[in-house]
Structures are given as C-alpha cells and as structure tokens.
C-alpha cells in the first residue's frame, strides 16, 4: 500500500521537476528542479528493486554530475539581463501539446498491446552489488574498459577545451 503512494509521489515529483526544467527561465532554477527529478528517479529505481543503481544514481548523478553543472552555472554568473527573452514561450508550449497529442494517443494504444509483465515476487538478491558487479566484470568487461577510455578522453578534452589559451605560447 505504501509502495503505491511512494510510486505516485516519485512519479509526480519527477514529472514536476522535468516541467520546471523546461519552464523556468533561469538555468539555475532549471538545474535545481532537475535535481528533484533525479532524486525521485533514484526512488523509482529502488521501487524497481535495483539497489546498486539506486545508490549510484544518488551519489554519481544527482550528486556529482549535477553539482558540476551547478558549479559551472554559478561560475558563469548569469544575471537575469543576460538571459534571452522568450516572447513566444507559452505559444510554443501550446503548439507542442497540440503536435504531440496524436502521437501520445498512438503511443498509449500501442503500449496496451505489450505484455503486462511479471508481477511476481522477484528473488532476494536481484540488483544487489554482488550480482550486478559479477555481471559487469565478467560478461561486460570490454565495454566497461571502453567506457573508462571514453571518460579519460572526456577528461583530456575538457582540459583542452576549457583550459586557458595563450598562457605559454
């Protein structure tokens, strides 16, 4: 019973956070409401009994990545006068709703034909650190290493792109 209320709360909070992200004018407010979305998504993952991803979502995504983005927004020191004025914002929103509603109707019709899924109790150790870790380091070792190379490339690229130009040349 309480799980149902938790599900509704998390779903409502994350949709509200996403709406805030697209409707707030200042990027700082948008990023803060996106943090709300990410934290409720972590709760959603916990409801899907994925304990490891729940923790990683909270620590890495809502913690590290979002604090990086917030730090950059503060670093750029964006004032209200720097922001572009968006006169047709609500007009765009209405137009978007009109365009998307037939697609949403089709999607709802299509999704009804999917299998309903297994509602049974899942085994106790699903999604634990041991199971996911064994799968990650046994079957998915090569993609894991490729992702680590990607992160290294991103690190070097960030230093090259954002580093000071002309300091020693």
């Amino acid at each position: 019973m309480i799980v149902t209320y938790m599900f509704f709360g998390f779903a409502l909070l994350s949709i509200l956070g996403a709406l805030g992200l697209i409707l707030f004018k200042h990027p700082m407010n948008g990023a803060m409401s996106f943090v709300v979305t990410l934290i409720s998504l972590a709760g959603m993952y916990a409801l899907l009994s994925a304990k490891l991803i729940f923790a990683i979502q909270l620590i890495v995504y809502a913690g590290a990545i979002m604090s990086l983005i917030l730090f950059i927004i503060m670093f750029l020191n964006i004032q209200a006068k720097d922001l572009p004025d968006e006169p047709g914002r609500w007009f765009y929103l209405g137009g978007g709703i009109v365009v998307i509603s037939p697609i949403a109707y089709l999607l709802l019709k299509m999704v009804k034909s999917l299998p309903a899924g297994d509602t049974g109790i899942i085994e106790q150790d699903f999604g634990g650190v041991k199971e996911v870790g064994q799968l990650l380091f046994r079957d998915w070792l090569l993609p894991f290493e490729i992702v680590s190379i990607l992160l290294l490339v991103a690190l070097v690229g960030a230093v090259v792109l954002a580093g000071k130009r002309g300091a020693n040349t």
Partner: peptide, 25 residues
Amino acid sequence: PAVGQIFALFIMAIAAAEAAIGLSI
C-alpha cells in the same frame, strides 16, 4: 541477467562524459 542495470550504469557514464565536454564547450 541484470543487463538493463548494466546499461543504466553505462548511460550514467555517458552522461558524465557528455556533461564534462558540453560544459567545457
């Protein structure tokens, strides 16, 4: 097999790389 969770982990890594490169741009 918890393959979907592995994919979610990889998506998080991609998001981190994207945020780093995008913010430096």
